[in-house]
Amino acid sequence: MPVRLDRPRSARRAAGRAPHRPPGTHGRRAQPGGALPRRRRRTRRRAAGRGGPPPARPAARRRPAALRRAPRGPRPRAGRVAGCCRDFTLLTVAALRHRGVPARSRVGFVGYFDPGFHSDHVVAEYWDGGRWVLVDAELDPATDRPFDPVDVPQSVGGFRSAARVWTDHRRGLIDGARIERYGLAPETPFRGAWYVHNYVLLELAHRRRDELLLWDSWGAMAQGPDGVPAPELVDEVAGLLLAADSGDAAAERELADRYAADPRLHPGPRVRSFSPTGIFGWTDLDPAPDRTR
């Protein structure tokens, strides 16, 4: 699916690769044709023998082939790799972008993991020719759910961006008690206003293709639940993110300019990491972020 110039600027930008998700030698697996299920390739050959391929469905109604691939069963234990939602999302985004489909990662909270709690989460989003579609690559599409995992709704019970949650909190739509239900898990201190505050800045970084880990910290981020260091700055960033989501090209440009110029918003060559594995300290980024992108 080639990138067309009539797509919004956000979609055109989301079609390029980023330093944290190059496919490397695995890129050939996502090449058009070679990565499709075997039955689909046979269908194409039969159609070509009858005088050409079947007519394509409208772009807005097609799902990228990377999302249609048939499962091959579980890997042997020795061949498995553990990962979080961010890793599932980056793999999905890398495969989609490698095939020319504009895609990006989105940071926010979902209400379908823990009843009564909104868990932090990263999902993929791709441009289907008419709109941005959310995909939760961690969910098995065969599992019975009230929604389609490759078209996740943006709602209280579905996915809500960090910018939306923060803005609703600041407007009083999510009060001080309810904001404590947004975070890593209800039994941990990693929840509440300070946590959502940090996730707005993380959402911005992912939008600018710096898809860092959820436990990386930099700039204006809070270091714990003792306070929110930059609420007005995060108010402005959240407002621009929501405007850009609605298609405001000027807001998208302002986000890019402010992210590049303000060291409170973007990570430098090092970030502080608070890993759930118990590793705390400074981490050097490799490659270092490129602010010219």
Results as ranks from 00 to 15, higher is better:
1 M>R: 10
3 V>D: 12
6 D>E: 06
8 P>Q: 13
14 A>I: 06
14 A>D: 13
16 G>S: 15
16 G>A: 08
18 A>W: 05
19 P>N: 08
21 R>K: 02
23 P>E: 06
29 R>Q: 15
31 Q>H: 13
34 G>C: 14
34 G>D: 10
38 R>K: 01
39 R>W: 04
43 T>Q: 12
44 R>K: 04
47 A>T: 01
50 R>P: 00
54 P>R: 13
54 P>C: 10
55 P>A: 12
65 A>D: 11
68 R>Q: 09
73 G>M: 01
74 P>S: 07
75 R>T: 06
75 R>P: 00
78 A>S: 12
80 R>V: 03
82 A>G: 01
82 A>R: 04
85 C>S: 11
86 R>G: 02
90 L>F: 04
91 L>P: 00
92 T>W: 02
93 V>R: 01
94 A>I: 02
96 L>G: 01
97 R>F: 01
99 R>N: 13
101 V>H: 14
103 A>G: 05
104 R>L: 11
109 F>M: 02
113 F>K: 09
114 D>Q: 14
116 G>K: 14
122 V>F: 10
125 E>S: 09
134 L>F: 12
140 D>W: 05
141 P>F: 13
142 A>E: 02
145 R>A: 11
148 D>G: 09
148 D>Q: 08
150 V>I: 06
151 D>Y: 00
152 V>C: 08
153 P>C: 05
154 Q>R: 15
155 S>H: 02
155 S>E: 09
157 G>I: 01
164 R>E: 11
165 V>D: 08
167 T>H: 03
168 D>I: 03
169 H>N: 13
172 G>A: 13
173 L>W: 09
175 D>K: 05
176 G>F: 07
183 G>D: 10
185 A>M: 01
190 F>P: 02
191 R>D: 14
196 V>G: 10
197 H>D: 09
203 E>N: 08
203 E>V: 00
204 L>G: 02
206 H>A: 13
211 E>D: 12
211 E>L: 10
213 L>K: 07
219 G>E: 11
221 M>C: 08
221 M>H: 14
222 A>Q: 13
222 A>I: 09
223 Q>L: 10
223 Q>W: 10
224 G>M: 14
225 P>A: 09
227 G>I: 05
227 G>C: 07
229 P>E: 15
232 E>R: 10
234 V>L: 12
237 V>R: 03
239 G>E: 05
239 G>M: 04
239 G>A: 05
239 G>Y: 11
241 L>W: 03
243 A>R: 05
245 D>V: 12
246 S>I: 06
247 G>S: 15
248 D>P: 06
249 A>H: 09
252 E>C: 06
253 R>A: 10
254 E>G: 12
256 A>C: 10
257 D>P: 00
263 P>L: 06
263 P>S: 02
266 H>R: 05
266 H>T: 00
271 V>D: 13
271 V>N: 10
275 S>M: 01
275 S>G: 04
276 P>S: 06
282 W>L: 06
285 L>T: 03
286 D>Q: 15
286 D>E: 04
286 D>I: 01
287 P>N: 15
288 A>K: 14
289 P>A: 12
289 P>M: 15
289 P>L: 06
